[in-house]
């Protein structure tokens, strides 16, 4: 438990949980006061919560931590799952303030899927830039809703009962969680491909 506590503190997870609670409060306010634009604003708030989860995967220790034993990947996975649950709990609590068109099932699908996008983007570009992937995805999803695109990969634009959309969101979450566990989009030792910022050479 001591290791879990230190890991969570180093990732600023308590602050992340507070921010997620703030997203839940914001959702409740949106549902109460902005009936006309609610679905778009609600999706933006779900995206914000997902970006918080992605950012909390940022390690302050970098290489000295990566050169340690097998506990780190498990901590990363537990952290990602725990914060995803916290994000959904906060948003679901906020959603009780009004009528969310996507319902509880749609909220769960959107939260899980967008967290997956955030975690995958974090593995690709660094956790502190994971919000860029979420932002791009939210824009695409809003465009899909406006233009009637029906691909299940843009699940927020699909009805909550759409099984294919739910499966796509789940698949993206599983991939994102896997990436968060490994810490990057590729196992570092297996492939000498550098997708993150250019490493410092020599010296």
């Amino acid at each position: 438990m001591r290791l879990v506590r230190l890991f969570a503190a180093s990732r600023r997870m308590p602050a992340a949980v507070l921010t997620l609670a703030g997203c839940g409060v914001a959702l409740s306010l949106v549902l109460r006061w902005t009936a006309g634009v609610t679905p778009a604003l609600a999706l933006v708030l779900v995206g914000a919560a997902a970006a918080v989860v992605g950012a909390a995967m940022q390690s302050p220790f970098d290489e000295s931590e990566r050169a340690t034993g097998p506990r780190l990947p498990l901590l990363r996975l537990a952290g990602a799952l725990g914060l995803t649950a916290a994000a959904y709990a906060a948003l679901a609590a906020g959603a009780t303030a009004g009528h969310l068109t996507s319902g509880a099932g749609g909220l769960l699908r959107d939260t899980v899927g967008l967290v997956g996008v955030a975690l995958f983007a974090g593995g690709l570009a660094g956790a502190n830039r994971s919000w860029t992937g979420v932002l791009a995805y939210v824009f695409l999803a809003l465009a899909a809703a406006d233009n009637g695109w029906t691909t299940p990969w843009l699940w927020p634009a699909r009805p909550p009962s759409d099984t294919a959309a739910a499966l796509c969101a789940t698949a993206v979450f599983l991939v994102g969680a896997g990436v968060a566990t490994v810490g990057t989009v590729h196992p570092r030792w297996m492939k000498p491909v550098v997708l993150r910022a250019a490493p410092r050479l020599g010296g």
Partner: peptide, 15 residues
């Protein structure tokens, strides 16, 4: 890694 100690050139830390 269990038997390794490593100090990188730029040390990251949680303040």
């Amino acid at each position: 890694r269990r038997r390794l100690g490593y100090l990188p050139q730029s040390l990251g830390y949680y303040p």
